[in-house]
Each structure stands twice: as C-alpha cells, then as structure tokens.
Amino acid sequence: MASAATADVTKQSAAPGWGQRFFSLARTLLRRPSHALGTLISLLFLVIAIIGPLLAPYGANEQIVADARDGPSAAHWFGVDTLGRDVYSRVLLGTRDIFTLAGIGTLLAVLIGTSLGLLSGYRGGWFDELLMRFFDSVLALPALLLALLLLGTLGPSRQSVLFVIVIVYIPIVARVVRSVVLSVKTRSYIEAARVQGESSARILFREILPAVLPALAVEAALRFSYAIFLASSLGFLGVGVQPPSPEWGLMVNEARDAVSQTPWALYFPAAAISLLVISVNLLADGLKHVFQMDGER
C-alpha cells in the first residue's frame, strides 16, 4: 500500500506547492539530530568546496621552507608537511577535488545507470536479461579491484578516476532503478496510461521515473559517499590523482613514510575523508527516512 501512496504523492509533486513540500521534507530530514548533523556537515563541505580558495591561507603547493615539518599552531592550524606545505590549506583545497571527482562521477553514473535501469526494467525480455547478466559479471569483481584493473590499462589521471567511478557504479544504480521499475510497472495507473495510448518514453519518464526518484536520491547519496572513498583509496594507492594535487587519499599516502615525523600531515586528511564519508552516509540515511515517512503519510 505504501508504495502506491508514494506514487500518488510523487505524481502530485509536479503540481504547484513543491516549495512547501520541499520544506516539509527538509523539516523531516532535520528532525533527527544524527541526520541533521550529517546534512549540515555535508553542506559545510560543499560550501568549502565552492569557496575553499577564498578561505585557504596558503596555496596548495606553496612552500614555506622555514616552517617545514612544524606542528599545528596558530599560523598553521593543521601543521606543515615535509615539503613545507600548509596542511590546513591543502585539506580545504582538496575538498573541491574530491567533490568534483566523486560528485561528477556519481552524477554521470546515476544518469546513465537510471536510463539503463528504466529501459531494462520496462522493456524486460532479452535486453533486460543480457544487460543484467553483464552487470552481474561486472559486480562480481570487488569495486576496488575493478578500479585497479581499469586504471592499469588507462593509466593514472583525474579523467581515468572519473571514468572508473562511472563504470563501477553504473551497474549498481541500474539494478536499484530496475527493481523499483519492476514493482511499479504492473500498477494500475501505468496500465491506464498504456491503455490511453501514451508513448513508451512518456510512460517511462512521466509515470515511472517519479516513482523511482526517492529510491534514486538515497542511492545517489550512498554512491557519492562510496565514490569519495573509492577516489581517495585510489589516490592513496598512487594510481589515482597524481602529485602534487592536494587530493586527500594522496596526501595520506605521501605522509605515510613520515608519520612519526609529521603525523598531522596524515591524520588531518584522513580525518577529512572519514568525516565527509560519515556525514554523507548519515545524510543518505536521513533521506531514506524522509521518503519512508513521506510515503507513509
């Protein structure tokens, strides 16, 4: 019953009053402290990603020879690494890197994955079978292993990492979308649309897609958090974004040898990764909760 109601509500969402609805959703999201915290910290990182260069006291690769290897202080909040670079500035500036990589990667994966999932679920038959078995075989490989395999052939670069994130996450998004489509497409309002003679494209995008959106939003948020993790793991393993970029995983890798000398150069970017991943996860959890509540109303 709940999902039928969801479908009805989402159909209304195209009508005026969406602003009001948005605020009601947002209020639900912020009701629980953990969800609120996750949302706020995620937003904070987003803001840093946008205006980071204005906040950073130093350039990402600016070398302050005299302060090299200094610990955290008023002048250098997160200390200085072995090459004399301000860790606070690098963490701030690295935020944009991780957001563009993980963000654009997730966005593309969601766009392509959703299209494929919609098509696969709606058409069914041999197309569905073929695509899903192919995705199964891709998913049989652990994400990191698949990423390493792909990067081994593409060579390490920012574009390669982006490509890898998209390739690794398309199957996952497509399967989630397809499962929702399968449960929705036998509903009576879809039948009605078909009987009315509406085109497949119209049914897919006007009738089915809105029903998929809540699940998709949650999935996208989850994918985003995993993409952050994947991008920094690849950076850490040295096959992702290349030095001297202030990518967090790469910073952790570079600081590894000097951990007893400049531990701050390792712990702050590592903490940034964990903090961002945790808060985006909380946000995803919150979104899931919101759409459930919304559905039950």
């Binding site: 610990g71 955290p72 200390g79 850490f236 952790v252 890798n253 590894r256 007893s260 000398q261 531990p263 701050w264 390792l266 712990y267 590592a270 903490a271 964990s274």
Partner: peptide, 18 residues
C-alpha cells in the same frame, strides 16, 4: 594508514603531538 588514522584521530585532536 587508514586504521591507525581513524583510531588515533580522537586522541590527536586532544594533543597534536607525534
């Protein structure tokens, strides 16, 4: 790299020593 990073982070916030 990651495990000690997460485990020790809380400690480090209190005292950013080696």
């Amino acid at each position: 790299a990651f495990f000690p990073a997460l485990a020790v982070f809380a400690l480090l916030l209190a005292a950013c020593g080696p």
